[in-house]
Every structure is written in C-alpha cells, then in structure tokens.
C-alpha cells in the first residue's frame, strides 16, 4: 500500500505546515511509514506552496509524490497546475472560496468553502487545519486526536484552541464527504488507526 497526498496553494496558507503535521501524526502515532517533501526555493517563492506526504505500510523507496491519490487545492492556480496530476480514481478536494474552475479529472471531486469557513471561525489562517481535517476525515488515515497531538507538538500554544476547532470541523466535513457516519474518537483507534479509506 502506498498513498500519496498533495496539499497545494499559496504561500501563507500553511499547507506545508499542514503536510508536516499530517506526516508527524503518522510517524509518531501509527505503525505506517511516511515521507514528507515540499516546494523549496524559487518554486516556493512567487506565491505558490506545496506539501507532499507519502504514506506506506512498508519503507518508502522513491520519496517523491508523482500521482497523488488525494489532492487538496486551495487556490485556483494550484488547482489548474495539479488537477491533471491526480491519480486515476483519486480524490480532489477544492477550497471553493478560491477555486472556481476545476478541470475534468478521472476521479472524485469534492468542494468546500474552506477559507470562508475558517474566516467565520475567527481567522482564515486556520483554513489549513480545516483542509487537513477534511483529508483525514475522508481517508480515515488518522484520527482527529492524533492530529491534535501533532498540532500541539508543532504549533505555539496560543493557537491550539482554534486549530483544534478547525481540525474537528474539517474532520466531520471529510467524514460526510466520504459518506461515513459518526467520528470515531476512542483512544484505542487513535493508537492504532486502521487504514480507513486507504485500505481500498
């Protein structure tokens, strides 16, 4: 099993940070292997930003994302650039606040006004956590508790409450998008999460 995630948008939207939190959660709280890469240098200047995560049940050999099964796009530019790279049968999640046109893809497309919702929650900066929550809720790869622990390890304390709220919200949205029921929150599942959607 090897699944590739790509989180793409503009610099400042916190997508690299979200990719690191996803990878951190997998690394420290599951038995899965994980590799995270991101855009650097000139690529990451000029406004665009990208965080990639590979999750695997064995050691990750080739470390780069080539055809993501899960693609979160939070700007129109990111959508236009990366939608065509979606793996066949993959899932594209778009922030409808900024993404107005989605090119045809061989997969599932889901939209949610992520940034707008974050603004309503208090600060647009937590849009990345809603996006991350959606990815996690949709795939079931990690529980919200595990992500929250990673947030607490990586982000300053003053931001915890809002980030947690955003994550939870995103997770529920993701669950609904995947057509699944209640959020599973038991600690046991947090310790040894199943692969959820990834098992397919």
């Amino acid at each position: 099993m090897r699944k590739e995630f790509r989180l793409a948008g503009a610099g400042g939207q916190g997508l690299i940070s979200a990719s690191i939190i996803l990878a951190e959660a997998i690394a420290s709280r599951t038995d899965l292997h994980v590799a995270q890469t991101q855009s650097y240098g000139p690529e990451s200047r000029g406004g665009s930003s990208r965080g990639d995560v590979i999750i695997s049940d064995s050691q990750v050999d080739y470390p780069e994302v080539t055809k993501p099964q899960y693609l979160l796009v939070m700007t129109q530019e990111a959508c236009s650039t990366y939608a065509k790279g979606l793996a066949p049968g993959g899932v594209l999640i778009a922030d409808s606040t900024y993404v107005k046109e989605i090119p045809p893809v061989d997969g599932t497309v889901k939209s949610y006004p992520i940034s707008e919702r974050a603004r309503e929650m208090g600060r647009e900066i937590v849009a990345n956590m809603i996006g991350l929550g959606i990815l996690a809720g949709f795939t079931g790869v990690v529980s919200p508790e595990v992500l929250e622990e990673a947030v607490m390890e990586r982000l300053p304390k003053s931001t915890w409450d809002l980030n947690r709220k955003a994550l939870r919200h995103g997770f529920e949205v993701g669950m609904q998008m995947a057509g699944r029921g209640e959020v599973v929150t038991e600690r046991a599942r947090a310790q040894r999460p199943g692969l959820g959607e990834l098992e397919k």
């Binding site: 990878a23 994980v34 590799a35 995270q36 890469t37 650097y40 470390p63």
Partner: peptide, 10 residues
C-alpha cells in the same frame, strides 16, 4: 538535498 530536506519517520 533529497535526504537533507525529506521528513521521515525515525
């Protein structure tokens, strides 16, 4: 650069 910037489980 790959192994320097890559994040992995350790």
């Amino acid at each position: 650069e790959v192994v320097g910037h890559l994040r992995e489980k350790v």
